[in-house]
Design a protein around this nucleic acid. Structure first.
Lengths: 358, 358
DNA sequence: GTGAAAGCGCTAACAT
DNA sequence: ATGTTAGCGCTTTCAC
């Protein structure tokens, strides 16, 4: 046996060792493990047995170098304090695992760290990148595409940028919330946005606002503020909204994502001592697990996460084989927008019931 | 320029291309980027400029193969629905990033997926592994050590296993909670454990129980049940605890981690309509962000997460250089147990105040 | 300080 | 179906 020693003095078994023990060539071992070339069940068996005995584990680094496929997909996401990203990561993780691939997650907060985090990942020859972070410079995505790495935007868009993206129909979701508020008899509205430059936030806000306007709600009955996509910032924003004379207070509050809605509700109930939905109805977007719990019972738009993740992975794989019908297949179909479902809970009563319940 | 094309038709710039443009040898380029060998500032400058112009990014896969160091640390953790793991991951992520290393996270739920998830990671030649999952077979850890990969257990132990581990002093934490309950005048106690085979849960429970027993609390005044480390299971357990005659109900409830404490509080307040802490005081362990929010105001033990993560990374690096003082340094010092701090909030009033406040 | 040369462990033609 | 042979892009002695 060859058994080269690494500096730590530990032996590392290679395919050559296995080949020697099984009495075959090294490339036979490669074929036995990689699902590539032809191999007879007989030799395959011998090889597997030898490998077993030697405790052989294929070296993916070497195979990546030789084949140019790492089997790694990078998922770039935002602050994990937003449970939506946790759900997203979990979903990608399990589905990727099912496809025998590794997931490399990269958390991105400021645009600065984002860029070099991505750069670092590029070194590892990832097979594809899922961009789920709200905040990310277009500079990097251009660089990624220049290197020919499959990229799909998840739950976000990049205006004026040629790339596949999969998202929940944010405009429609915002509209659904507005409609529900109207039916529940709301009069004055407040809207808490996330990041101003994020299309996701913009679209949810737009769908909401446009629907209200169309229904005849006067512009000055819709106040808007940015909660920076955080629980704490949303609290600050809500405090400000309810600091003026009571006559101006909104009775319907839409936070463009759930994590902000939680902050809003907590401030409303525990600081301002208002009733939800009695004094102010609240709705969110994302359907994070926490929103369903007893202290919140948050009415929210549930994106079809499972379908979105499946679609994303599917598109990623499609991009890996650029030969077939590049123009025939994705002619116009580069944006996939899946409808979300409005889940009624206590913070915005389901239509038909009086909003008096607590 | 050489500019080999990959199958996708995209050029990839290598150190050879840079060398050619800069008029130096390929190995000079390697030295200019890797912090290894000697290189004059002059040539270094030329090389960097050439690399810049070509948009060169070093290939970490190739460098890993050649140097046997991937720069990747794997963090194996439990279900991310427990925010403690989210905090842990974030901490490792940012600290690893600061050390110019990549983090590969692996979520582990059942012991089955754990093993092959780890096996898959081993193929990628990770430089080290942080084992933060409560549930994991000792079989795998043995395999990891056999391959000579640095391993440190985080927030958990593996009895009868020779390995470095870093954890919060769980026994002491449990004891602190017990003491606080006693001072607050509790009479009947309930204890919700996580996984029976997890030392972390066992130790927290033991510290708690032993302290009560020593203080003269009769055994039958301490009931115990397992909440499986989940919000939902804790709710089930709490419902059961309060289903008998009211005289037997506990007035002090310790959940060995916060996520279960949240479930317990929600059931207590919204289903059983009991007051916290008025009817029953509650304490947790981990200090997850959610526990500090208005609906909970959970009293809990805060582990020194930052210090724990630093220590873990430090030990990991120490294990990578096995030469120096293997016996001199870690003679007996293989278990690092850092004291946690009891954070008083409303669910268990700080001593000196009456437990009447809501 | 710099270049030449020998791998790292595997994949992928290409022969046989 | 199997073996042979080039590399993949970099690190790392080793001469100079």
């Amino acid at each position: 046996m060859v058994h080269r020693k690494s500096k730590s003095g530990v032996v590392s078994v290679t395919s050559i060792d296995v080949a020697a023990l099984a009495g075959v060539s090294q490339s036979a071992v490669s074929r036995a493990f990689g699902s590539g070339g032809p191999i007879s069940p007989a030799t395959r068996g011998k090889i597997l047995k030898a490998a077993e005995k030697l405790n052989y584990v294929p070296n993916s680094i070497a195979s990546t170098l030789a084949s140019r496929r790492s089997g790694i997909v990078a998922v770039v996401h935002g602050d994990m304090h937003n449970p939506f990203f946790v759900e997203t990561i979990q979903s990608f993780g399990s589905k990727l695992q099912a496809r025998q691939r590794q997931m490399l997650t990269i958390e991105v907060n400021s645009s600065v760290t984002a860029d070099d985090a991505l750069m670092r990942v590029l070194r590892y020859q990832v097979d594809g990148i899922v961009l789920a972070a709200a905040q990310l410079s277009m500079r990097v995505t251009t660089l990624v595409q220049a290197r020919g790495i499959p990229l799909v935007l998840f739950s976000r868009e990049l205006p004026g940028h040629e790339s596949v993206c999969v998202l929940c129909d944010n405009v429609d979701g915002g509209r659904q919330v507005a409609a529900a508020f109207l039916r529940a008899g709301a009069r004055r509205y407040a809207l808490v946005t996330a990041y101003d430059n994020a299309t996701t936030s913009q679209d949810r806000a737009r769908g909401f606002r446009d629907h209200l306007l169309q229904a005849g709600v006067p512009t000055d009955h819709i106040q808007v503020a940015s909660g920076q996509s955080s629980y704490e910032r949303a609290q600050v924003v809500v405090r400000a909204m309810f600091s003026g004379p009571q006559t101006g207070w909104p009775d319907a509050l839409f936070c463009v994502n759930d994590i902000m809605a939680l902050g809003a509700i907590d401030t409303l109930k525990y600081e301002l001592l208002l009733r939800v939905p009695g004094d102010v109805m609240v709705a969110g977007f994302d359907d994070i697990p926490d929103g369903a719990r007893a202290p919140y019972r948050l009415t929210t738009v549930r994106p079809p996460l499972d379908a979105m993740v499946d679609l994303t992975l599917e598109q990623l794989e499609l991009l890996e084989t650029p030969s077939q019908g590049a123009s025939a297949n994705d002619a116009g179909q580069r944006h996939f927008s899946l409808k979300g479902e409005l889940i009624f809970r206590d913070s915005l009563p389901t239509p038909g019931l009086s909003p008096a319940a607590r």
